[in-house]
């Protein structure tokens, strides 16, 4: 059997600080198949962006990968020298970030940026690159693409700019796209357009997508599977329908219940008491136990691994029975 397109094994990211080493990611493991959209959700500081940054090799020093492996089509990429990784990034892994202005170079036209990216990564000439650049702008829904190719990023509106960023991330035909809050800076109407676009393009080309967002609504309609992160660990992972409708981990359940519904008014929203711990104060055992209404003795002592919870896998001792004795 072919290895998954992306496999992350037991990933650990550490930040040495004056007061000691902080563990930002702790034992994160998951895989993404070709053509699949994996959603990654969690609250700020849960480690979702850190996971994306680790895969594309963009962890800000002094942060570093302290353990585990990242494999692209079965080949390790976490230990590659900078130059090799740089070539993979862009050619095989595309990235879309929240703020299109930080991704685009304000001094070059969007056409030049698209052409340059393709010339760097694809075996094509300038003519062909220009032709494809227009094609990409059309594909992401930019009207009058042939004229807009000579425009600078500041001449586009926010929604249009994010389309350019998507074109830029996809134009080298990567196998994997890491999209970190791609629609968070956009209004709902534009957000819907961008999501539809991203989904269509990936379906059409079999690109795998890791979609990082705090917006469960976006995940629910876009992702095939979803990983819920908490305090640098995966709390639950499974098919999006299962995780959203029948969450197995008490944290996921609390998270889902706290989302205000659009179709009715509730007198009081369900809330999880307290807040996610800081990296310097992660409790022993299950990181969620101080806030968990169902915590028992073992949760305070021993950290649960991802256990089979019937439909999803959850890092929660409540599911030990089903999972049998292996943990």
């Amino acid at each position: 059997m072919a290895p998954p397109l992306l496999e992350v094994r037991d990933l650990r990211v550490e930040f040495p600080t004056r007061r000691g080493v902080l563990t930002a990611l702790d034992g994160v493991s998951f895989a993404i198949e070709a053509g699949e959209v994996l959603g990654v959700v969690g609250e700020s500081g849960a480690g979702k962006s850190m996971t994306g940054a680790a895969i594309i090799g963009l962890i800000e020093p002094p942060g570093r990968i302290a353990g585990g492996q990242i494999l692209l089509e079965g080949r390790r990429i976490d230990d590659l020298p900078y130059e090799r990784l740089r070539r993979i990034r862009g050619r095989e892994i595309g990235a879309i970030f929240q703020d299109p202005l930080t991704t685009l170079n304000p001094l070059y036209t969007v056409g030049e940026q698209l052409e340059e990216t393709m010339l760097t990564h694809l075996p094509i000439g300038r003519e062909e690159a220009r032709r494809r650049a227009v094609g990409w702008l059309e594909r992401v829904g930019i009207p009058a693409a042939a004229q807009r190719i000579g425009s600078y990023p500041h001449e586009f509106s926010g929604g249009m700019r994010q389309r350019v960023v998507i074109a830029l991330a996809l134009c080298a035909e990567p196998k994997l796209v890491i999209a970190d809050e791609p629609t968070t800076a956009l209004d709902v109407s534009i957000q819907a357009q961008i999501i539809a676009l991203l989904k269509g393009l990936t379906r059409e080309r079999g690109t795998a997508v890791m979609l990082i967002t705090h917006d469960m609504g976006v995940i629910a309609e876009t992702a095939d599977r979803v990983a819920v992160m908490y305090a640098g660990r995966i709390a639950e992972i499974g098919p999006v329908r299962e995780v959203v409708k029948h969450p197995r981990h008490p944290y996921t359940a609390g998270l889902m219940a706290s989302i205000p519904p659009l179709d009715r008014r509730v007198e009081r929203l369900a809330q999880i008491e307290g807040a996610m711990p800081r990296l310097s104060e992660i409790p022993p055992g299950c990181a969620f136990h101080p806030r968990c209404p169902q915590a028992f003795d073992r949760c305070r002592r021993e950290r649960p691994g991802l256990l089979d919870a019937g439909g999803t896998r959850a890092a929660c001792w409540l599911h030990l029975d089903r999972a049998g004795r292996h943990a």
Partner: peptide, 14 residues
């Protein structure tokens, strides 16, 4: 245009 949890799998109309 609002994405809603209930609409898992449903196509949103932009």
């Amino acid at each position: 245009a609002v994405p809603d949890l209930g609409m898992t799998g449903r196509q949103r109309v932009p």
